[in-house]
Nucleic acid binder design. Structure first.
Lengths: 242, 242
DNA sequence: CGAAAACTTGATTAGCATCAAACCAGGTGG
DNA sequence: CCACCTGGTTTGATGCTAATCAAGTTTTCG
């Protein structure tokens, strides 16, 4: 528990308390900043709530800000030359998305909320100022780029190859990384699964149904499910050994 | 044409001339440096020649250096959980690989020469020193991370989806980016194509043979080919419209 | 020159896409 | 409150694409 200094307890700016109390702060972009640093910046940061299906930013748009995901799951997707949507990777709590805006580049992909999402919008100009003042910030940025690259490469190696059943199992494993408190994982719509795993809705549905019958998966309310991790890992091992 | 100052014309260190005359210097990592900066560093840089099939670095190895590719084509690949090799992306002239070493992280993938390759090995410690001295260098690093991410995402969106024929056509298009002077492109082995496009050697062979018969592709000597770009683009359009 | 490696081609089969139809949940308006 | 509609999901039947299995051919290199 951090003790909040008295002089700031009744700060006039409402964002002050929010940044101060931010649950993801220690992992997130401004973990590197001390309270003083935080004080200087909070008025430029806006926190936003985004409903499922709504876009956070779009590909080709001139990037003006990066976003820290405070809760929920965001998908990053592109439309291929052929015209079909492909989901490239997911971002969750503590992830920073839209990094390319720091370089004054256009966003390279669409970012769309999969669940209700809370993000903090951090303007590019602010990142520039901070980078000049705090060398830690630049290092943190580079680490985040590397993480994004790692995620993309892992997605490519594990989620685009092998039979449909294996890809679905690996997706569930990945989704478990974004689990809510209470073991609940977000269960994507079947067409989202299709865009992630390069399969049709019908195939996605068949795989999910099969796994439900096997007890790997238990849908709990719309768009959520409980995973039996033991059975999931077991199914994966069985899959990979054949 | 840069005029080379007299005082350096007979520098004792052989690497001095090489760095000075480096054909990729303006695009490569040290484009940001002036001659003075270059003078300070060249003794730490080693240029290496690597034969096809040889490894430049391996995944999990503690990264001690980044590498600028001066010529040839390098593949970045991972072994999936299931145990099969997956090629994630390619790197060519002016690309910088092994960026994660700057963060003192382990290499995330294997880097293997596809053709005869020339690289400059740049130690991590040198990058650190330069970053402190020259702010441009850090910006350049971030741009390169973003480029790597872009490449990985494009690979995912264009080369992992659609029928085998389309994926092969798109691979040829990508290979044309790495063309030699004289329109010659490197033609991978069939099993490399398989690892790039997630198909078997047999399917890769069938696709290449078909495209050769259609005149899209003309093998010229081992491991090289001439592409008819007009027919290639035409075949791609026909493919995507169906 | 001979062996190994890479490539090609053919026949058969498995897995997934496609087409088609039914099913279900949640929201709306009569 | 219920009938209805809509968007998402499930299931079934059929066909096509690419994997697999199996030779055979060409190239490479000691």
């Amino acid at each position: 528990m951090t003790v909040i200094p008295i002089y700031r307890k009744d700060s006039t700016h409402p964002q002050a308390q929010i940044c101060q109390a931010c649950a993801v702060r220690q992992f997130a972009f401004f973990g590197a900043l001390d309270d003083n640093g935080l004080e200087r910046i909070h008025q430029h940061i806006a926190d936003q709530r985004i409903e499922p299906g709504q876009s956070i930013f779009s590909a080709q748009e001139a990037g003006q800000a990066v976003f820290t995901v405070r809760s929920g799951v965001v998908r990053l997707e592109r439309v291929s030359e052929r015209g079909d949507r492909r989901i490239l990777r997911l971002a969750g709590r503590t992830d920073l998305i839209g990094l390319e805006s720091v370089l004054s580049q256009r966003y390279a992909a669409d970012a769309v909320a999969c669940t209700p999402v809370e993000v903090c919008r951090i303007p590019r100009t602010l990142v520039d100022e901070l980078s000049a003042a705090e060398p830690q910030v630049v290092l943190d940025l580079m680490k985040r780029w590397q993480r994004a690259l790692d995620d993309a490469e892992e997605w490519l190696a594990e989620l685009t190859t092998g039979p449909a059943r294996r890809r679905m199992l690996r997706l569930l494993l990945k989704l478990s990384e974004y689990a809510q408190p209470g073991d609940m994982v977000w269960l994507p719509m079947r067409d989202e699964m299709g865009a992630m795993l390069d399969m049709t809705v019908e195939t996605a549905s068949r795989m999910v149904s099969a796994l439900r019958r096997e007890g790997v998966l238990e849908p709990m309310g719309t768009r959520e499910a409980h995973l039996d991790m033991t059975r999931l890992m077991q199914a994966l091992r069985a899959q990979d050994s054949t």
